[in-house]
Amino acid sequence: MENVVPFKIQLLSIIGSLLFMFFIFRLIVKGKLREEYSIVWIACTLLLLVFAIWRNGLDIVAKMLGIYYAPALIFLAAIFAIIIFLVHLSVTNSRLQKQIKDLTQEHALMKLELEKKKLES
């Protein structure tokens, strides 16, 4: 069991997770990513980091869930997370579209009011 995850790849995944986390933090600091969206990404990176350090973790969790081939768990979890996040983005997008519509209408109607005031004076 000790040789399931070789040391090299373990080091690589720890470095990768940390780099990803650093990248997310930098985006937040620069103001390019809002905190509410970053929570999901920080949680994801932490999860990656946990499994990178805890070498047998994946096997143990997979066995607990009755998954024969442990790496399949990674794909399952990743795809599930991606789908959830995409739905979340669609919801956000729909809300933005509604807000843009309301703003556009408000803006156009205010311009009309202004024009009317100008004509009156």
Binding site: T104, Q105, H107, A108, L109, L112, K116
Partner: peptide, 17 residues
């Protein structure tokens, strides 16, 4: 002089609204 000019295309529903 009385008209609404939408700065962004909203589709017919948004225009009528």
């Amino acid at each position: 002089h009385l008209y609404v000019n939408l700065p962004v295309n909203l589709g017919i529903g948004g225009a009528v609204q």
